[in-house]
Design a protein around this nucleic acid. Sequence first.
DNA 1: GGGATTCGCGATACCACAGTTTTAG
DNA 2: CCCTAAAACTGTGGTATCGCGAATC
Length: 389
Amino acid sequence: MGVVVEENCVKGYPVVGGGLGVWPMAAKPCDLCKSASALLFCKPDSAFLCVACDTRIHAVNKLASRHERLWMCEVCEQVPASVTCKADAAALCVSCDADIHSANPLSRKHERVPLVPFFESAETIIKKSSAANAAAASGNGSSNLVNFLVPGADEEEDHEDDVSWFIPPQKAALTAAMDPIEVKCAGVELFYTDFDHLLDFENPNQLYLNFKNNQHVAGSDSVVPVQIKPEIVSGIGSSDRCFDIDFCKSKLPFYNFDQSINHSVSSSSMDIALVPDGASASDISYSLGKHVNSGGGEALNINNSSATQATQLTGLDREARVLRYREKRKNRKFEKTIRYASRKAYAETRPRIKGRFVKRTDPDQELDRMMFSGGSIDFFEGYGVVPSY
DNA sequence: GGGATTCGCGATACCACAGTTTTAG
DNA sequence: CCCTAAAACTGTGGTATCGCGAATC
């Protein structure tokens, strides 16, 4: 599993080649201390540095403090990022950008901007980000926030249920190549699985939502199981380490899902980006304060109080977490969830040849009229019935 | 012990179509 | 900015097919 590093594409910065399937498991270590993961690349020094070493090296004199630095790619963690994807709220290298954003039509629409080098110390940026996030948090009711609180090392296992269903096929392939995919929030490695609790469809109190125009809209297809509890849907697990989302609030300013979230395990057509594209991305504060919320107020709040600690994960820590993640993923069980009973009903009555749907004949249509007319609501027994609008 | 073959299992593609959402005019 | 029509998208189930690992020869 070699990593081809080339000097191209981004002038002066190494670029990883090979795309999916060649990423190593561990993040690139800091060139100086060798113990922590490198989080930035200093161009003048041609060195990959962790936050601590960056602070130490570049605080020596004014000249050093003017060194041009770039954040590492958040996906491969091997080379400096060259672009920022607003939709994914992630800094990506050329190769990862190409891989991820060629995955599907939706991802291709993601707005990306060139990553601007920074000259401040990484630590300062992180602190500023923390302060901004803290201010945002204190200025709003907790119910208005999504708190990406740092999972504790011991409890983290409970957060590592897989969300491969939540990842588009291409990303799933990516997962296979380098799973677990991780999202770094405020320097904290959050597996995608951290979103699982937010979207726990196996919970008896299932919540089916269409995040349309920042609102939850029940009811495409008319027949949808709906159970919306009028209280906050909290993350499962310890109360202080979870997502808190107030679904009752009319707007979710940070999550503009333009598709309904689905849990159709067998679906092969899911093109759901983890973070939707569009303007809302600017309201997301993420990854070490690289991008602090600009909208103020109800932006995604990240508590990175132990960010530094988390970023100092050693290779062994990381490997152990990955192993736990894989073990849990191996043992998981998915139960198919029917989101639209009407479609299920149609599908069950639809004529087939060798399992494939075929065009209806007239007698079939007559049968359907008999089944679906005359208020045969019993047909959907067991499902909530939502009227069409 | 190593290679070839067989078997079983899981994952996935395929199909039509009603309803919803997005886009264009 | 609003409205309408058209296009695009989504999800649904049963079967065939594919790929992979284990077992057997």
